[in-house]
Design a protein around this nucleic acid. Structure first.
Lengths: 253, 253
DNA sequence: AAGTGGTCTAGACCACTAT
DNA sequence: TAGTGGTCTAGACCACTTT
């Protein structure tokens, strides 16, 4: 085994034109690897794009795509007229997504919602503010528990604007899915919304419902969705015990 | 004012070649706007790339870049041989970044760390596992409080591998910054690490230090950073009261 | 003035999907 | 077979930075 020459020959200096992997991605991976192995360090300038064209025998546009890819991923930064530089590792580059949360929702078999309470109620001050209504206006109200294999996973409470002229309530109160609250159907306008995540203390009632001891922590995930004319359409929150969910992310290369 | 014709003329069907905004981004914004206004709805197929070339009078590569931009942002999905389609709104597309957390750290004026405790200790079972050491191996230990205008903001506890052959401890225990733990200097290898976020109940001690009532919730943010040869280098966690931090994001267009 | 990244062209060929 | 997205070429011009 000649790991040195082998890796250099195969991975460092050649683009395999027969590979299914596109050239631009091969180049991005080569550069990423050189950075992670210390050949280029944070702050260092990468070879210029024209140099990379010559070294690898590919056209400028292809090099450009590779660089753009790395820049999008936060691995390098580019500066017009100066060059391309290896980015320093920073906390703020870390991002996390809700994939784990999604997997909670979409465990279809042996999981369902149990409706605790639902109906029409007058908006209190907070709900009115969140939904852009007047205090006392009617809202649809729902409290439910998501169960998997008879175990409570999370608690959900939501308020929807009550509009007698737009009787789409049935689908939005769909018991077995979050359709309408979260996922826009193919015939709907594309909705948009805001999410906010905080850490919170569960109330006694929430802890009871979720089979947790009383002073327990949980994620508080608030959502506001907007519909037609950018008017608030629904507002609510999830309570997800800390043992059911945690977010993971990776930082660096 | 003729908002209808004006917006169509200016924003919907023409690319302004004199604009500082690149053509590919103009096209992406045009398509995004058409989607958000309901001209294309989730599941609909967008015009093919060759059609877009003709309609807007730009070359295939430029159209391609616009489509790629929208696909990266989750607005559309592409399928080779079939077409480009408007993506449905899904929870899992939501992405959070740690910008807010970063702003906590980098409030330089009137903020500093107060060291509560530091020294060399033997690794317990958990620390040994996290750092890839044997139980009893020496680690550097630090507990500190981050203050802003004399108010406690968050609590930090970390363990570092103690390696007498690599005396870089001074910089890593730098009191006034997180340098060494988080940010790779220009001469270092690019580090990488993992972050994990959970909701937790603060201990009595933590609540006391952070001036919070006892049963209080907080974010528990665990970090492991790796150094040379991908060996664990530091491990620890932050306790950030829920009134100091929350994550926000936007979903949809 | 020389070198850098940023954009764009007008095609080409390929792999895939639908009919 | 026709149409679609995916990749790539070999240049061009521009804006910017450095010397």
């Amino acid at each position: 085994m000649q790991p040195e020459s082998q890796s250099k020959g195969d991975l460092f200096f050649h683009i395999d034109r027969e590979s299914y992997e596109p050239a631009y991605r091969q180049l991005a991976n080569i550069l990423r690897r050189q950075i992670s192995e210390g050949l280029f360090r944070p702050g260092d300038q990468l070879p210029s794009e024209s140099q990379l064209c010559q070294s690898f025998g590919i056209s400028p546009m292809t090099v450009r795509r590779a660089i753009n890819l790395l820049a999008d991923q936060g691995v390098v930064t580019t500066s017009q007229g100066r060059g391309t530089f290896v980015a320093a590792l920073e906390l703020s580059t870390a991002i996390f997504d809700l994939q784990d949360l999604e997997s909670l929702f979409t465990s279809t078999a042996e999981s369902h919602f149990r409706i605790l309470d639902a109906g029409v109620v007058s908006a209190d001050e907070r709900t009115a503010r969140k939904l852009g209504l007047n205090v006392g206006d009617y809202t649809i109200y729902i409290r439910r528990l998501f169960l998997h294999q008879s175990q409570p996973i999370f608690y959900h409470r939501a308020y929807l604007v009550y509009d007698p002229d737009r009787p789409i309530l049935e689908s939005e109160l769909d018991v077995e899915s979050l359709q309408g609250l979260f996922i826009s159907g193919s015939s709907d306008l594309l909705k948009h919304g805001q999410l906010s995540i905080e850490a919170t203390l569960m109330s006694r009632e929430e802890a009871n419902l979720l089979n947790m001891p009383f002073p327990s922590a949980a994620f508080y995930l608030e959502h506001i969705f907007y519909g037609f004319k950018n008017r608030p359409h629904s507002w609510g929150w999830f309570i997800i015990p800390s043992n059911r969910l945690h977010f993971k992310t990776h930082i660096g290369i």
